[in-house]
Write a protein that binds this DNA or RNA. Structure first.
Length: 465
RNA sequence: GUGGCUAUAGCUCAGUUGGUUAGAGCAUCGGUUUGUGGUGCCGAGGGUCGUGGGUUCAAAUCCCAUUAGCCACCCCA
């Protein structure tokens, strides 16, 4: 007899966790809808070719591939099979894969549905994604992303709206001490150019920069060396570290402008960031929650403009949200020149943070307002009618399914955390009342059914968290 | 992928330098008389000590292998 288990990096969610998660999703949904986003869903798995080549080489390897049905080996390429070249063989034995994020499937969706949609199109999407990563703290193989994207406009008001949504969403969830870091790929591009990094090494450069917080300056230097980036580029990194210490976003942007000189793209990006920060501040996003971080890089290949990341100080997980502008993600699906920007809330990591700081509101997972006890006679006519009357009055109710001893029935109600128990015995029926016990207080009264219902309605549903 | 730690009841863990029938708490179930839960008291069930080999008169304990999990590194959102 082997104990059952679930794959590493996956989790079961019990009633308590689900009460919290549903509240989390409801809260974010409310924020998205308040900003005019509409929901969509896409399939859990896509054609493998839709996903590959969008997330960088590392990302591609983390995509969960689905083996073809049928006798896939018989149909596989003989030569590749014999050479045991897994990577090359994949294409001939797998045509589908679990989605890796919600953004690429969204781009695919937009291209396919373009004639049905009105642009700019604002959608939100709360669904699972899968990554074949090595699981660890705050790292799952299956997790839920809550995305909202605006596609079909280059207006920087879209970035502003998403920053507001970060602030409104995380505030509504009660996430403490979150910090929205913003940067721009165009600025990064210019920085790498100014520091003498060949254009072909830009991606390598961003990967190394992204690691700074983990590996330190020496680590980045080693990265540069192993990736063939001139050591002279280190000077810039140190400058950027200084900028991080700037008193505010305005000062940071000013220093960055000095480093960059007159590159046109970068100048525009700097101006846009400046505007974004100002407008966000005016829109009520506190300065302490918003930081311009010249070292924020982000790994995904498709970002071209503003990029975002949200971290929580002292939290046991990495970033809880991410996002950015992608100028032409639909281009790879055959529709060029459609710019979009989006952000993603990592529900599972936010859940981890709230667990860590014990920051959940009081949520009931009881799901039952009143339980009707069953008499030994097993004649349930009056009980069924009472339970139904409760439901018609908008209460959730159930009749205990067996004519068990009261001790057992009351224990069941207690263990479930049900506050109210109704008893309709001989005596009650004779006098046209019900007995209603308040499990929280321990009192019990006899009163007409209608009054009992009113009393329950006046109380809150459960008494155990 | 590298290093370290761990594996004993449903859960969390004790278990001495190897030595009789492997324990506790929690959980579960039953009892504590009439139609009533939570706290108390009494009782019960439940383990081939991760798996396979070895050393020994004797292994939960020592050795080897193997599997799984945890932590750190690496990598990444």
């Amino acid at each position: 007899m082997s104990k059952p288990s679930i794959p590493k990096g996956t989790r079961d969610f019990g009633p308590t966790a689900m009460a919290r998660r549903q509240w989390l999703f409801d809260t974010l949904r409310g924020v998205f809808e308040k900003h005019g986003f509409v929901p969509i869903q896409t399939p859990s798995f896509e054609n493998l070719s839709t996903l590959t080549g969008k997330y960088g080489e590392e990302g591609d390897q983390l995509i969960f591939k689905i083996l073809n049905n049928g006798d896939y080996l018989a149909k596989a390429d003989e030569g590749l099979l014999a050479s045991k070249n897994s990577k090359a063989l994949t294409a001939s034995i797998s045509k589908k894969a679990l989605r890796y994020d919600l953004t690429v499937p969204f781009a695919r969706f937009v291209v396919m549905q373009r004639n049905e949609l009105t642009f700019p199109f604002k959608r939100y999407q709360i669904q699972n994604v899968w990554r074949g990563d090595r699981p660890g703290k705050g790292r799952y193989q299956e997790f839920t992303q809550c995305d909202c994207d605006i596609i079909g406009t280059e207006s920087t008001l879209a970035e502003l709206e998403l920053v507001q949504i970060f602030h409104e969403g995380l505030s509504a969830l009660g996430v403490p001490g979150f910090r929205i870091a913003i940067n721009d790929r165009r600025i990064l591009q210019a920085l790498s150019e100014v520091s003498g990094v060949p254009a072909s090494s830009f991606t390598d450069w961003t990967v190394a920069v992204d690691k700074l917080d983990k590996v330190g300056l020496e680590g980045v230097a080693r990265e540069f060396e192993s990736r063939g980036i001139p050591g002279s580029a280190m000077a810039m990194i140190e400058n950027l570290l200084d900028i991080r210490k700037a008193s505010d976003a305005h000062a940071a942007l000013g220093q960055m402008a000095e480093l960059l000189g007159a590159g046109e793209n970068a100048t525009q990006a700097l101006q846009e960031l400046e505007d974004l920060v100002c407008r966000a501040k005016r829109a009520g996003v506190p300065e302490r929650n918003l930081h311009v971080d010249p070292l924020l890089a982000r790994g995904l290949d498709y970002y071209t403009g503003a990029i975002f990341e949200v971290v929580v100080e002292g939290a046991p997980v990495g970033s809880i949200c991410g996002g950015g502008r992608y100028a032409d993600l639909t281009g790879i699906f055959g529709w060029k020149g459609v710019s979009g920007v989006g952000v993603s809330f990592g529900a599972d990591r936010i859940e981890d943070v709230l667990n860590h700081v014990d920051g959940w509101p009081a949520l009931s997972n009881v799901g039952l307002d009143v339980m009707v006890a069953q008499m030994e006679s097993g004649d349930v006519k009056a009980e069924l009618a009472a339970a139904q009357a409760c439901r018609q009055a908008g209460l959730s109710s159930e009749l205990y399914p067996d004519s068990a001893k009261f001790k057992k029935q009351f224990k069941y109600a207690n263990d479930r955390g049900v506050r109210w128990v109704m008893v309709l015995g001989e005596d009650e029926r004779a006098s046209g009342v019900v007995s209603l016990k308040d499990m929280a207080e321990g009192h019990q009264d006899q009163l007409p059914l209608a009054e009992a219902i009113a009393k329950i309605q006046a109380s809150s549903a459960g008494f155990i968290d």
